[in-house]
């Protein structure tokens, strides 16, 4: 029971309270770039959930069994982790194209974009290298915790992205002053959305 509530708290904390988009500002490029239509936002969210889980598992294993024992982590973690993500994305793309054309058509074009999505790099580094987000609170994730954390972060990403897309679709038909139309108004909307997430801060002592 204790473990279940522990994992649940980890998930809620990663998904809502420390939402990667709206309370940490990580992954904003895709947030503004892709939130034009509901279909693209859904494809991107699915692709991010999938890649983030795989990337976090891989970086966790590489850190635990390769970089840390060899004492290479401190100065090799940036190139190592970004290469892992880039290679992984490439493999996933090749695999999907061959074995699941339907899925490939649904999320294929978003996969290359994920390589440069900072959310994936950030989450994958956080679970692998202790104390990446907060240096004072170094925390060693176990593999199970790493998986739950990555799932939480990516679900939180998808949730925020879909909410924002829905708001933006509505904004298109709203009467907005001419200078603010388009991007400026999107930023202000994102600010108000982020205000809602600030209200969650401190829940469950997270």
């Amino acid at each position: 029971m204790a473990t279940i509530s522990h994992f649940l708290l980890l998930f809620v904390g990663a998904a809502l309270i420390n939402n990667i988009l709206l309370t940490r500002f990580i992954g904003l490029c895709s947030f503004f770039g892709i939130s034009n239509s509901m279909n693209t936002a859904m494809g991107m969210s699915a692709a991010v959930i999938f890649v983030m889980m795989m990337a976090s598992t891989t970086t966790w294993l590489v850190w635990k069994f390769l970089l840390f024992p060899l004492n290479l982590g401190e100065f090799l973690y940036i190139p190592a982790f970004i290469l892992i993500i880039a290679a992984l994305v490439q493999f996933v793309e090749m695999y999907l194209r061959k074995y699941s054309p339907a899925l490939y058509r649904a999320m294929g074009i978003y996969l290359p974009l994920i390589t440069t999505n900072c959310a994936v790099l950030a989450a994958a580094t956080e679970v692998a290298k202790p104390g990446f987000f907060k240096m004072a609170m170094a925390y060693n994730y176990t593999l199970g915790e790493a998986l739950v954390y990555a799932l939480g972060v990516s679900v939180g990403y998808g949730f925020a992205l879909l909410t924002f897309t829905a708001l933006r679709e509505r904004l298109d038909i709203a009467p907005v002053p001419r200078v603010l139309k388009g991007n400026p108004m999107s930023f202000i909307t994102a600010g108000l959305l982020s205000l809602a997430y600030v209200g969650l801060a401190g829940w469950f002592g997270l």
Binding site: L22, V179, N183, P184, S186, F187, I188, G191, L192, S194
Partner: peptide, 19 residues
């Protein structure tokens, strides 16, 4: 200083530059 402020301020900066 908080997160929402950054978004809202940046929105106005972008609008200003566009103007």
């Amino acid at each position: 200083m908080m997160f929402p402020g950054a978004f809202i301020l940046f929105g106005f900066v972008v609008a200003f530059v566009r103007w």
